[in-house]
Amino acid sequence: MDIRKLKLHEEPPMALLLLADPSQKHVQEYVKRGECYVAEVENQIIGVYVLLPTRPKTVELVNIAVVENKHGRGIGKQLLMNAIQTAKSKGYKTIEVGTGNSSIGQLALYQKCGFRITGIDMDFFIKHYPEEIFENGIQCRDMVRLSQYL
């Protein structure tokens, strides 16, 4: 697997980005302002992540996704570790990520990779998304914020 920054002339893999964030409007906005990285195997994009600078020396991982038929193979963890290394190499001191209260697997992965819970944005998904989101049989209501010092 090769992970690389998306080239200027390339379109971001929107279908893949929408697996992690169902709002095309939100995805288009942060992809324009951030840096998009893709994971490829045999010239096929199988994963993606987006880093968005938010404050001095702080970057947020605003999207990370793996094609559904490749779940459970450690690709998400490799992407996450690559995002952490990329942030470090660019001089950031903190990397942040937010995920839904219903994203049980993602919450576990982030914590296994060194992130700590720093806060909760109550009703974030109720206020900012027109459709109800359910995951793991749980309504996604709150944004759980995590961060890691680099």
Rank of each mutant, 00 (worst) to 15 (best):
T99R: 03
T58R: 04
Y129D: 03
A83L: 07
V62Q: 08
G47K: 00
A87G: 07
K93L: 13
E42A: 06
G76D: 07
T118Y: 08
K57N: 04
L107Q: 07
C140G: 07
R141D: 08
I117F: 08
V48L: 07
Q139C: 14
D121L: 09
I104P: 08
F124H: 12
E132M: 12
E96Y: 02
I104M: 14
L52Y: 05
G47C: 08
Q85T: 13
Y49G: 03
L61N: 03
N63I: 08
N82C: 12
P130N: 05
Q44M: 03
F115G: 03
E60M: 09
G74P: 03
Q85G: 06
T118G: 13
P56V: 09
P53C: 09
N63M: 12
K127Q: 14
K112R: 14
V67N: 11
T54I: 09
Y92Q: 00
I120L: 14
C140I: 10
K90Q: 00
G47E: 05
G100V: 06
V41S: 02
S103R: 12
I126P: 06
G91I: 09
G98S: 10
I133V: 13
E42L: 08
N63F: 10
N136I: 05
D123E: 15
L107G: 02
L61H: 01
Q44G: 00
I95W: 00
Y110G: 01
E40Y: 02
E132A: 14
I84D: 02
T99Y: 02
P53F: 03
L52M: 14
A39F: 03
T118C: 13
T99N: 11
F134G: 06
A108G: 08
M81C: 12
N63Y: 06
D123Y: 14
E96Q: 03
L61A: 03
G91S: 11
L109N: 08
G74I: 06
T86C: 04
L51K: 00
M122T: 13
N82S: 15
D121I: 08
M122R: 15
L51C: 06
K57R: 10
F134Q: 10
K57A: 06
V66N: 01
C113I: 02
M122G: 07
V48K: 04
D142E: 11
S103D: 12
T58I: 07
E68D: 08
V38M: 05
I64R: 01
E68L: 05
E131M: 05
I126T: 15
F125R: 04
Y110C: 14
L80E: 01
E40T: 06
G137N: 14
E68Q: 08
